[in-house]
Design a protein around this nucleic acid. Structure first.
Lengths: 198, 198
DNA sequence: TTCCCTTTTGGCACTCAATGCCCTTAAATG
DNA sequence: CATTTAAGGGCATTGAGTGCCAAAAGGGAA
């Protein structure tokens, strides 16, 4: 372990992910996502265009921030969940945890999710991120069912869990002062009623 | 109504969607999707690159073929479904109908779906197509619930129906001689058990 | 037949994302 | 101070997508 910055030899980094993200979000807010060129983001962040692509593999990845880190947490939460509670409840709790936000972080997260869910290019790109998310769920379900993650049930639960989360998010963005955890509960119970009612 | 080709004035078209699609699929099969340039497709179809973009708004749209026409059928099927059967059953039946294939069409459809579900660029682009599909479902659910399509339940059912269809499709692609309708049934009943079991 | 009208075609130029190549910059180490 | 190591960034290239506009190719009327 080395102190503040973990680099010892060589030229020190001029920037970091969050500096780029901030510059990018400012421009996205001012002009919109499509209207903001990568060159403009690089310039606003005070780095070269080539450097930007070393920090983010694509323009589309910028708004996703530290999503991978979130996946690790999701996986950890599931791994640590008691094996005696019903499967659907373990999954639901993990999803609630994954989407837990501190009060102070809500406005930022709203802005990020609005960008992700309303920009066509990002809606498309998101499919690739979601696949990794679904897989974390599917792996857990497979573990509890004694199958592999590519069996029908784990896959289905992965897809359906994402479906529930996304419908909650879409609703959350539309109702200015709604509660995300409450919407996650509602979409699940709505589905349950849908499947069991006349 | 005019006979064979419905064009009377002006220069007659030199090509059509299916000719382009055929040329494209041949190249995709030979070299893969990413490795096939739009110029190559245009050349193979015997048209100019500019013309290709008048028939398909993007390279990513080519593998989708006549999807919009399918959506119209889905909508029609739902509109014609008896209002006295349970909501989930009406939806499920419509999805079965939407994904019904003649025996002879199966190999082609397999190839198309394999391309769509395994190529990253197409997985991403598909999100935009799926949105329209989900909306057809959501509109129907909204109609039967007396709400609008942007309420939580219709949205949820739209997302979940897609989730079920996609998991069935993914499974279908993996098991060479599986039955798509059977898998659609299985993913639904798997979900139902998941939500109601201990 | 010839001219006009309509519609499709496709060449050309341009923008922008993404990527490979490679030289430069700037620190740490001995 | 020279060497080593890692980051920065310029340059050139590829490939998708788009606007503009002139050429091509028919039908119909004079």
């Amino acid at each position: 372990m080395t102190s503040p910055s973990a680099h010892q030899r060589g030229r020190p980094p001029t920037t970091d992910h969050s500096a780029i993200e901030q510059a990018a979000f400012r421009l996205f807010g001012e002009r919109g996502f499509e209207e903001t060129t990568v060159d403009a983001i690089a310039e606003a962040a005070g780095i070269g265009r080539r450097t930007l692509f070393r920090y983010y593999p694509s323009k589309n990845d910028i708004p996703w921030g530290q999503f991978e880190a979130g996946l690790v947490r999701l996986h950890a939460h599931l791994a640590a969940s008691p094996p005696d509670i019903p499967l659907y409840e373990a999954v639901h709790r993990a999803i609630l945890d994954f989407n837990h936000l501190d009060e102070a972080a809500i406005p930022q997260h709203r802005q990020r999710m609005r960008l992700l869910l309303t920009t066509p290019a990002l809606q498309a790109h998101s499919a690739l991120k979601y696949a990794a998310w679904r897989n974390v769920i599917a792996e857990y379900v497979a573990g509890r069912c004694g199958t592999t993650a590519d069996a029908l049930l784990p896959r289905t639960i992965g897809h359906v869990s994402l479906a529930l989360a996304l419908s909650a998010y879409e609703q959350w963005l539309e109702e200015e002062d709604s509660s995300l955890p409450r919407l996650l509960d509602s979409s699940l119970s709505g589905l349950r009623r849908y499947l069991t009612r006349p």
